[in-house]
Simulated assay, not measured.
Amino acid sequence: MYNIHIEDSSGVLSTLTFEPNETQNLMVFIVDALAEDIGDCRGRAWCGTCMVQQLKGACKINKIGDEQTILNKYPEYFNTRLACQIFLNADLHETTWKVLDSRQFM
Rank of each mutant, 00 (worst) to 15 (best):
T69A: 12
G11T: 12
N89F: 10
Q104I: 12
M106I: 13
K60S: 12
C41T: 11
H5I: 10
A33T: 13
A35C: 07
V28A: 07
V31I: 15
Q104L: 04
F18T: 10
F18I: 09
D8P: 03
S10K: 09
L71T: 09
W46G: 11
M1F: 02
C59L: 08
E19K: 12
P20E: 14
I6C: 00
E7H: 03
D37F: 02
I61W: 02
Y77T: 14
E76D: 14
V31L: 01
D8F: 01
N79Q: 13
M51C: 02
C59S: 15
V12M: 04
T15N: 12
L92W: 10
Y74V: 12
A33V: 05
D37L: 00
T15A: 07
T17A: 08
W97Q: 02
D8L: 01
C50E: 03
A90V: 13
Q104H: 09
N25C: 10
N79Y: 10
Q54Y: 05
S9Q: 10
E94M: 09
A33W: 03
Q53R: 13
R103K: 08
F105A: 00
K73S: 11
L13W: 04
M51I: 12
Q54N: 11
T95L: 04
L82Q: 09
I86S: 06
G65E: 15
V99K: 00
L92T: 12
N72S: 13
T15L: 01
C84W: 06
T96G: 04
G48D: 05
I4M: 01
C41D: 11
W97P: 03
I61G: 02
A45H: 09
M27V: 12
L26D: 07
L16E: 05
V99I: 13
G48I: 04
L13S: 10
L16F: 05
I64V: 15
I4Y: 02
C59M: 11
A45M: 15
D91P: 11
F29W: 02
T49I: 06
V31M: 08
D8H: 01
V12I: 14
G65M: 13
S9I: 10
I64C: 13
E76K: 11
F18M: 03
A83N: 10
D32M: 02
F87P: 06
S9P: 02
C50G: 04
M51R: 09
K60H: 13
N25F: 05
R44H: 14
G48K: 01
